[in-house]
Write a protein that binds this DNA or RNA. Structure first.
Length: 948
RNA sequence: GCCGGAGUGGCGUAAUGGUAGCCGCGCACGACUCAAAAUCGUGUCUCGCAAGAGGUGUGAGUUCAAGUCUCACCUCCGGCACCA
């Protein structure tokens, strides 16, 4: 009986790998490189948890596979150790954050080593190491010298608990991301990084990288690129104008007012001309005093006041428009002025409703009939129509006409005469066509819809402008219908869920459906212009161009992305290497003096006035100006913890360099990162920030590629049992140590890969893990069956299964379908178990495929069956394309798509052979009677179609 | 509201448009055992004694054939959210 002593095996191999430096990335090297990366952890006091391991194991598998494929792999690890939890712990305990960091990283390192990850530990880095942050500071100074790091007084998010300024990204639902406490807006002088200067490239270059689509989408949403126009509206009686940013220049005829943000400067410039300046002033005061939470409060009603005495001129038609100030317009986006188009913007609609402003529809949706599209060269006739949508409130069914001569179902409908009332026209059509007369008006379903189609009976193309009117039946009384109507169609009542295209043939149907249950709201989509003078009939896209040009507007691109607030009034971060001299201004610390070291302090608490604790250390703060040698002060703000992680992957390529952040040749060889896996939560912060820094360094010609990561993938969260997030406060965090102790690292790794699709969130379930442990125990037992006796070599079928498994595991690892790769290995192992003997060769192939998942046990067995060199030096197996399929295949026999059994045939069997075989099989043959048609897909299925 | 993603046994999940439920957990029965655990074997979607019928969130559609493709809807998860 062979036992599985995981502790002994895992310890043994971990120490051998460490001694032999088995996973060292060589440099220089003639081999092709592969750089695989995972996010370096923040070494919190809680230690590693099982969530970390999912990403680590996945990239470990890929790294090990790449090595077996002959690559020189760089798979590094380090510590992102600056940050608030450590600092808060220091405040509480008085222990120096550096010491806390040291303790925590020691724990993390040990935990990671116990899991057998193939990191190159010689390249370990730590962002809090002065030898590292020297270069973080150096890069900051390059940004400063290029004008991309600047100081500005900005309203920042201020956390009342942490007493710290937060970036927009660190505020979640108006609350501090870390402590969940309330935040408010405060004006403060802050260091900023001009990431917006790179917005266009950060957006566009996403085309050139291989990121998961959802990652790209999320970044694009965050960057928020939108193309629009800036259009000047003259202020009546002055030589000044208001610049409006809009993405909907096509709706310019529908503008019925302008709105400016409360911060807008014309409020001061034209104060004397505003008749109700007092009222306006009070409104603005109120708006500016709101904090973030109040301003974004849900369902907040729109408010605003007019600027009496000021009028703007619509440049398109010369119309005079009132000007309002309202807090729903943001000063920080666009120009801080919008044109109000209530018919085509929901917010404007809401505002207009509230303040009784006119609503003018200028764009209507357009549909081209799929069944009868317009034909070329036919004359075009325009018509005005109405659809009557009649519901029976008793059963929710809808009144329809089933046409006798056409395969149509329609609503009651007809033309509308000029000047005829819509509702009356709809009533008339319903009565004439169906006989129902007792109808209660529910609503007119929004504005018109336009449709283009070919009217065959008149041989002409039509453009229809249709309104829909909705009624409820008050009773089921029905008048008689004319014979003509009776001959034309039957009356049918259809349930709501059957009101769908193409059963109902109206091209406009989707428009009515979208308005079915909604109150009258504005139409915000693109369509065709009406009520727009000479632009009538143009589609939105064309109209945007032509109208913008006509009013001499400028095409502009705007972004939601804002510059990055880079200051923190804290201790545990990289000091910003700037000296402030009253005479000479802001100066960079001379390069020779880098790094600016963090001084020792007694108290890590921020000061009461919100300054960094560093500001209390006069011996550190007071320096001589590097230029005039006069008295000057150091900058006391430190960097956010996103700083160190914005370039750490570059440092791994050359971690000990003390002349540069990394040597050119090492960078050239190792970067860009080939494959970066990490959490979705970093998509809009770390991932975007590091792309920005990297592009900046690329512009300075300091890195060889414009994008840092060729490929980015993401793992799903591991949740606690019950599907909730793991968190310390809930006490449901699973620590890997006990699992490694009880069942071993290999089992834990295997289970995390097997538990479900890698990219999906999944709940931890310790009971299921036992299956992975059992599998490994059975794999160990297989060694007894291994024979090197050639005459006992196993069957052809097994050879095919092995070949299929090589292909499956190889492909699945590449696409991160680890769960199915493990499943394939289990299937092969089950097959092995059934046999008396397994050839050494076959078992070796199996071990090689298994080794990236469970490296310790694979090494052990590899050695046991007589190999001297490590399994990680063995070549990755290659499958033989010709040996993937059996000669005999199972063909499924079905009658009318219903499966009735299988027959086993040669893979190239003809249809006739298969039919014969199927007929002869009594279980299947009894089903095969008359059939009109046979569908035979070689090697897969044969289907008899009876045509019933 | 907008943008992503997902809905399949008791559970985690698997299925190039071609026998739905592979692999694993759990459960049941059997073997081993004085007994239990472990291990091994057999079975395990639902209804039905059976023959058979039904079945992948709902409703339509395309197809010889739909978990898979199309349209509409419902539910859940993630992200964004007055960005004009």
């Amino acid at each position: 009986m062979i036992s599985y002593d995981h502790k002994k095996i895992e310890k043994k191999w971990q120490s051998i790998w460490e001694k032999t430096k088995a996973f060292k990335a060589r440099f220089p090297s003639r081999k092709k490189k592969f750089y695989s990366l995972i996010e370096f952890p923040y070494p919190s006091g809680d230690g590693l948890h099982v969530g970390h391991i999912r990403s680590n194991t996945a990239m470990d598998i890929i790294s090990r596979k790449r090595r077996a494929e002959g690559y020189n792999v760089l798979y590094p690890m380090g510590w992102d150790a600056f940050g608030l939890p450590t600092e808060n712990y220091a405040i509480k305990t008085g222990i120096h954050p550096a010491l806390v960091t040291k303790q925590n990283t020691d724990i993390f390192r040990k935990q990671l080593k116990n899991l057998g990850f193939s990191f190159d530990w010689d390249r370990e880095i730590n962002t809090t190491d002065p030898k590292y942050y020297k270069w973080t500071q150096w890069i900051f100074l390059q940004l400063f010298k290029k004008g991309l790091a600047y100081k500005a007084t900005v309203p920042i998010n201020w956390c009342l608990n942490c007493k710290i300024g937060l970036a927009n990204e660190e505020v979640v639902d108006g609350k501090c991301e870390r402590c969940n406490g309330p935040t408010e807006k405060r004006d403060k002088e802050q260091w900023m990084l001009a990431i917006t200067k790179y917005a266009e490239r950060l957006d566009k270059d996403l085309d050139s990288v291989d990121y998961l689509p959802r990652i790209k989408t999320q970044q694009r949403n965050w960057i928020g690129r939108s193309v629009g126009a800036e259009i000047d509206f003259k202020i009546k009686g002055t030589d000044q104008s208001l610049k409006v940013f809009t993405t909907r220049a096509d709706t310019l005829y529908g503008a019925t007012y302008l709105v400016i943000a409360p911060e807008h400067k014309i409020l001061n410039t034209f104060k004397s001309r505003i008749d109700n300046a007092l009222e306006v002033g009070m409104y603005v005061q109120l708006a500016l005093n709101q904090n973030e939470i109040e301003r974004v409060a849900e369902n907040k009603e729109k408010t605003g006041v007019p600027l009496k005495g000021l009028k703007a001129i619509n440049p398109l038609n010369g119309e005079e428009l009132p000007i309002y100030v309202a807090d729903y317009v943001l000063s920080t986006y666009g120009t801080g002025v919008i044109m109000g188009v209530p018919a085509h913007d929901e917010r404007d609609y809401e505002f207009a409703q509230k303040l009784n402003l006119p609503i003018r529809e200028v764009v209507i949706p357009n549909r081209i009939d799929k069944n009868n599209p317009p034909r070329k060269g036919k004359k075009i006739v325009e018509r005005k129509n109405v659809h009557a949508i009649v519901r029976n409130p008793k059963n929710g069914k809808v009144l329809c006409l089933k046409w006798k001569k056409q395969p149509w179902i329609t609503f009651p409908m007809g033309g509308v005469e000029d000047g005829e009332d819509l509702v009356e026209a709809a009533r008339r059509e319903a009565r004439e066509e169906t006989g129902y007369t007792n109808l209660k008006l529910v609503k007119v379903m929004g504005g018109q819809a336009r449709a283009e189609y070919f009217a065959a009976h008149k041989n002409e193309n039509r453009i229809s402008y249709t309104n829909a009117v909705m009624f409820d039946l008050t009773d089921e009384f029905q008048e008689g219908r004319s014979q003509k109507e009776k001959d034309s169609y039957d009356i049918v009542w259809l349930p709501k869920n059957e009101i769908a295209y193409p059963k109902i043939v109206h091209a406009e149907l989707d428009i009515w459906l979208s308005r079915w249950d909604k109150e009258n709201v504005s139409f915000v989509g693109d369509g065709v212009l009406i009520n727009s003078g000479k632009f009538d009939g143009l589609d939105s896209e064309k109209a945007r161009r032509e109208i913008t040009e006509f009013v001499k507007g400028k095409r502009v691109i705007k972004f939601k992305l804002r510059d990055w607030v880079f200051s923190r009034q804290r201790y545990w971060g990289e000091p910003i290497p700037i000296i402030n001299c009253k005479k000479c201004g802001l100066l960079p610390v001379p390069l020779k003096q880098l790094p600016v070291l963090l001084p020792d302090v007694k108290n890590y608490k921020p000061t009461d006035n919100g300054e960094s604790p560093l500001s209390n250390i006069s011996s550190w703060v007071n320096v001589n100006c590097p230029k005039c040698k006069g008295k000057a002060k150091r900058e006391t703000d430190v960097m956010p913890n996103w700083a160190g992680s914005s370039w750490y992957f570059l440092r791994y390529t050359d971690p000990a360099n003390n002349k540069e952040f990394a040597g050119k040749t090492a960078l050239k060889y190792f970067t860009p990162v080939d494959w970066y896996n990490g959490g979705m939560e970093h998509t809009t912060l770390h991932l975007l920030y590091s792309r920005f820094w990297h592009k900046f360094l690329y512009d300075l010609k300091l890195v060889p590629a414009s994008e840092p990561y060729k490929k980015r993938t993401s793992h799903g969260l591991i949740l606690a049992e019950g599907g909730v997030k793991m968190s310390k406060s809930k006490g449901n965090v699973i620590n890997p140590d006990t699992i490694v102790e009880n069942v071993g690292a290999d089992t834990l790794r295997l289970y995390e890969m097997f538990m479900g699709p890698f990219d999906q969130a999944i709940a931890w379930n310790e009971d299921s893990m036992i299956g992975c442990r059992r599998f490994l125990e059975r794999v160990i037992k297989l060694q007894d069956q291994v024979t090197s006796n050639k005459s006992q070599v196993t069957s052809k079928e097994l050879g095919i299964l092995i070949n299929q498994t090589i292909k499956k595991v190889t492909d699945d690892i590449e696409s991160m379908r680890f769960n199915t790769a493990v499943s394939a290995l289990m299937i092969l192992s089950n097959e092995f178990e059934k046999r008396e003997y397994i050839s050494k060769n076959e078992f070796e192939t199996f071990l090689k495929l298994l080794s990236p998942f469970t490296p310790h046990i694979s090494e052990e067995l590899w050695q046991k069956i007589g190999n001297k060199r490590s399994v990680h030096l063995a070549k990755w197996p290659i499958f033989d394309k010709k040996k993937l399929l059996n000669e005999k295949v199972n063909v499924s026999v079905s009658i009318d798509g219903k499966s009735r059994g299988i027959v086993s045939v040669k893979d190239n069997a003809t249809e006739k052979e298969v039919i014969d075989l199927a007929r002869r099989n009594p279980e299947i043959g009894k089903w095969i009677k008359e059939h009109k048609k046979v569908i035979y897909v070689k090697g897969k299925i044969i289907n008899f179609v009876t045509g019933k």
